[in-house]
Nucleic acid binder design. Structure first.
Ligand SMILES: Nc1ccn([C@H]2C[C@H](O)[C@@H](COP(=O)(O)OP(=O)(O)OP(=O)(O)O)O2)c(=O)n1
Ligand SMILES: [Mg+2]
Ligand SMILES: [Mg+2]
Length: 321
DNA sequence: TCTGGGGTCCTAGGACCC
DNA sequence: TCTGGGGTCCTAGGACCC
């Protein structure tokens, strides 16, 4: 989440048209151990076992990472983004599986279709999550109905967060994992999140946290109380004040049901051994560019990015043919 | 153990125009 | 002859997320 498209609301989250009017709620649905769950669905004998999905599924090969790990594998310390070989050390008995995008895309589509079958507004966010805008006296009841329907239709379980803002709902989902329902509101935001580090907020990572630390802001409540002039000076006229809005639990930006229109497409690959010959590099760059561009008649652009870890990635925008 | 691949949005700065 | 300020459009790169 970046700054709001227009203006810079400095007031605390307020009642919004769709987000937080009386009886209006934002729900955030996030599937549990998504890729691993999809794999277990097709191979039920894996249920209860540590499962690690990532790369080509061969943990003896370098330059591959974990996409996700089942909760059983997480108990051994395996996490998304971790080198596959490290995962194999931490959990030698895990079942390692290659990533199968088409299967996950199909599962994701079924989940989204299930959510859209309700009289609610659905905003997809990535493969395995969605914001749901709904009017409900008992949002927890609605959450459980959504969970039951998703499970019945797809065999997948999910957690649901409830809030007056997207940020509250998204954050609440973390407390609902796995399979549960949790609510976070303006009233409970500071008591729940106040003492946590600013990185607990969706959209604030290590770099921003380090810069905030330089101006004495470490926790969420400190961010919520920070001087927005100071933040504006350090982070810019839009980003600075918006950071404080995040500290306060987010704004009333609505759940949008517009069909997702991809902004970009890209292809990139990391080679087991660095490429050294110029001709070889050119060959792969050309191939990736062609793949990114897609079918001849496609009107989408894309990026190529010949890069090595720790070096400068180079990229260039491609244009519709 | 040695760090993927696919995205999103924002900002800075250059080109160009008035 | 030099210069200003503002606006729009574009891209590379940064930061973040799943
Ligand atoms: N660094 C990451 C993080 C996530 N993913 C993929 C694999 C995950 O299965 C999926 C969803 O991400 P989540 O953060 O929602 O993680 P999970 O759904 O796997 O687990 P959780 O139950 O914690 O949501 O996105 C990935 O490829 N690389
Ligand atoms: Mg998930
Ligand atoms: Mg997710």
């Amino acid at each position: 989440m970046g700054p709001p498209a227009v203006g810079t609301p400095l007031t605390p989250p307020r009642q919004g048209s769709r987000a937080s009017g009386d009886g209006d709620w934002v729900l955030h649905v996030d599937l549990d151990q998504f890729l691993a769950a999809v794999e277990v669905l097709r191979r039920p004998e894996l249920a209860g076992r540590p499962v690690v999905v990532g790369g080509d599924g061969d943990p003896s090969r370098p330059r591959q990472v974990v996409a996700t790990a089942s909760y059983e594998a997480r108990a051994f310390g395996v996490r998304s983004g971790m080198p596959l070989r490290l995962a194999a050390r931490k959990c030698p008995d895990a079942v390692f599986l290659p990533s199968d995008r088409p299967a996950y895309e199909a599962a994701s589509a079924r989940v989204m279709a299930t959510l859209r079958s309700f009289p609610v507004v659905v905003e997809e966010w990535g493969w395995d999550e969605a914001f749901v805008g709904a009017s409900s006296r008992q949002p927890e009841d609605l959450a459980r109905v959504l969970q039951a329907r998703v499970l019945a239709e797809t065999g997948l379980s999910c957690a649901v967060g409830i809030g007056e803002t997207k940020l509250q709902a998204k954050t609440a989902t973390g407390f609902a994992k796995p399979g549960g329902v949790a609510r976070l509101t303006r009233r409970t935001w500071i008591e729940t999140m106040g003492d946590r580090p600013v990185t607990a907020i969706w959209g604030i990572g290590q770099r921003t946290a380090a810069r905030l630390h330089d101006c004495g802001v470490t926790t969420v409540v400190e961010l919520a109380m920070a001087d927005h002039h100071e933040l504006a000076r350090r982070f810019g006229p839009r980003t600075g004040p918006y950071l404080r809005v995040l500290g306060l639990g987010g704004d009333d930006s609505p759940v949008l049901d517009e069909p997702h229109v991809p902004r970009s497409r890209s292809r990139e690959v990391t080679f087991e051994h660095d490429l050294t010959r110029r001709a070889e590099i050119d060959e792969h760059v050309a191939r990736l560019a062609t793949e990114a561009r897609g079918p001849v008649c496609s009107s989408a652009g894309g990026r190529i990015c010949p890069a090595a870890f720790g070096r400068c990635p180079l990229s260039e925008r491609l244009h519709p043919s």
